[in-house]
């Protein structure tokens, strides 16, 4: 069951943000979207999630067009992690994660057994069980980001779209988060992640989509997409392969 974007276009205020996007995303694979600021990465993810309507083209999940899908069903099948996580009320950690079960009809005050299980699993996979009863406004940005990831995992969706999920995380937590997303792909989900950290891209991506100026300029294996020529063309800066410390495993798995 694939997620297919067919000639997607999106315009905002007379400006073309995305144009002619064609993608077929397959289950079991982790696809990373890279590109410079303003390339349209977040817009693409919102269109794929069905949160925004495209101005041209469409998105099809398992043969059904997203725009014809009931919002609840769409949300059950596609989980979207936005780049910025607003927290308008000081919910506690568990309640924030539990919101991921909303599309399943879960009630925050009395989650059913399946919901409670999904919430607990998601929290243990993001190592956020300790924040269960802490107010999210008292947590650091990184801690909140991990809860946000847990919220998306808890949905147990077929498609998982994460917009810069590791931006505020320390290196070990970055690996833990990417491991969790990788595991989602392994269980058979379609996973699309927007990343800026090229080291993480090379390490985790099965496929890299390079976006620039609202168009796909590269799509393939990480080695091709991360070639210095491609990067220079896209980012306008010269890249070299360098030797830097790279964590081989996060703390929780080290022991």
């Amino acid at each position: 069951m694939a997620l297919i974007a067919a000639s997607l276009a999106r315009r905002l205020g007379g400006h073309t943000v995305l144009d002619g996007i064609a993608l077929t995303l397959e289950p079991g694979r982790l696809c990373v979207v890279i590109g410079p600021n303003g390339a349209g990465k977040s817009t693409l993810l919102r269109l794929l999630a069905g949160i925004d309507r495209p101005d041209g083209g469409g998105v099809i999940l398992g043969g059904a067009a997203l725009e014809n899908m009931a919002p609840r069903e769409r949300a059950r099948r596609i989980a979207h992690l936005p780049q910025t996580i607003a927290a308008h009320w000081p919910l506690n950690g568990r309640d924030m994660v539990a919101l991921g079960r909303l599309p399943h009809g879960a009630r925050l005050e009395a989650p059913a057994a399946a919901d409670a299980m999904a919430i607990a699993t998601a929290m243990s996979r993001t190592d956020t069980a300790a924040f269960s009863d802490r107010r999210i406004d008292m947590l650091s940005a990184g801690e909140r980001a991990r809860l946000a990831l847990a919220r998306v995992l808890a949905t147990e969706a077929e498609v998982l779209l994460a917009d810069e999920p590791v931006a505020s995380l320390d290196p070990a937590q970055q690996l833990a988060a990417m491991d969790a997303l990788r595991a989602e792909a392994t269980r058979g989900a379609i996973v699309v992640v927007v990343l800026h950290d090229l080291a993480l891209v090379s390490r985790y991506a099965d496929r890299v989509v390079v976006l620039a100026g609202g168009r796909i300029v590269g799509d393939g294996r990480p080695s091709a997409a991360l070639a210095p020529d491609m990067l220079e063309r896209v980012y306008g800066a010269r890249f070299e392969m360098a030797l830097i410390p790279v964590a081989v495993s996060d703390r929780s798995r080290a022991g």
Partner: peptide
């Protein structure tokens, strides 16, 4: 009520959770 819960994390998250 459920929609209001979803809005606690902002409109983008709420829309992602199937709340209009």
């Amino acid at each position: 009520r459920r929609g209001l819960d979803a809005l606690a994390l902002g409109e983008e998250t709420a829309r992602g959770l199937g709340v209009d």
